[in-house]
Amino acid sequence: MSKVKASPPPGCTLNISDPQVQEAAIRIQASYRGHRSRKELREKGPPKILQELKDVVLVEGSAAKLECRVSAFPDPFIVWSKDGKELKDGPKYRYVFEDPDVVALVVRDGVLGDLGKYTVTIKNPFGVTSGSACIIVEVPAKVTKGPPSVKVKKGSTVTLKADISGEPPPDVGWLKDGEDIDEDDRVFFDIGDTNTILTIKNAQRSDAGKYEVFVENSLGTDQSFARVDVL
């Protein structure tokens, strides 16, 4: 007994002689060949950086991310370092992998010590490559330790010292009773990287008063006060 072959439902037939069908088949074959070729090239080649690291700004207390786009297959071994010292993945430095091709480093709880050159090293069985960029740390100007109030004898030398911080380095000024101090050979101040010192030679009773040290940069301002009494 012969079986009757059922006809396919409407719309389910495929005419291989149809030009549109033939064109679609060609596109599928070309796409497969292109994908296979790209994969084979990736397997045979060393890692490549497709998009370089860029310098970033890290504001004190916040986080910053360095990232680059890479081409590497099989999956590469990634190491981040700062000024030549390897950074371990952990609470401070977080290794991040985004998409298949993006590697990143997140630096948390920013401090001035995070300023430096960061390098990513990417290695697979076929080779190694690396790229570098800088983290630029910005810190609001601050008087971290103000000068103490002092009592001195007439004719003695007075020194008022304040510890300061800030990045960019802050502008520094000293005031007496709210007025800018006009420096001369007897009254002058010096500004270092981390402190400033006001010197008053041969102190006179007219030097008594309220002294203020003032710091300012693009991120903020700060000040501290001290009293000088001349006996």
Rank of each mutant, 00 (worst) to 15 (best):
L198E: 13
G127D: 03
E86D: 13
D193H: 03
Q204S: 11
K210G: 00
N15E: 14
S62K: 15
V102A: 01
Q223T: 01
K88T: 04
W174V: 04
E216H: 04
R33L: 06
E98K: 12
L105V: 08
P47T: 04
K85S: 08
G173R: 14
L198F: 09
R38H: 04
F225L: 13
K85V: 15
P47V: 01
R227M: 10
L105W: 06
P168K: 03
E23S: 14
Q29D: 12
G166Y: 03
P148Q: 09
R205H: 07
I78E: 06
V107A: 06
P100C: 02
S17H: 07
T144P: 02
N202E: 15
I49R: 12
L198Q: 10
Y211K: 03
E60M: 10
A6V: 09
K123I: 03
I136M: 08
D171E: 13
P46G: 04
P9R: 10
D83H: 00
Q204E: 13
L105H: 05
G192Y: 14
L14D: 06
K92I: 11
I122G: 00
I26W: 06
L231E: 14
P8N: 04
P9M: 01
S224C: 05
T221A: 11
K153N: 14
I135F: 06
L175I: 00
T159I: 05
D193A: 09
A226S: 15
G110S: 03
P125T: 01
V215W: 03
S71F: 00
I164F: 02
D83E: 07
G90L: 06
G90A: 05
A30V: 05
S81H: 07
G173E: 11
D180P: 13
G45Q: 15
K82Q: 14
T144K: 07
V139R: 02
G116V: 12
I191H: 07
G113F: 08
P140Q: 04
I135R: 11
C12W: 11
V21S: 09
R38P: 00
R108L: 01
I16F: 11
S31V: 00
R108M: 05
L112Y: 03
V187R: 15
G131C: 12
V120C: 11
A6W: 06
K39T: 09
A141K: 04
G84H: 10
Y95Q: 09
Q223M: 08
I16T: 11
R42Y: 01
G116N: 14
P125S: 02
T196V: 03
P140A: 08
S130A: 10
S218V: 15
V128P: 00
S132I: 12
D171R: 06
E183I: 02
S206K: 15
V57A: 13
I200V: 12
L115K: 10
F188V: 00
A203F: 06
A24G: 13
S2K: 10
E167P: 00
V215H: 03
A72R: 02
A72W: 05
G166H: 06
D185Y: 02
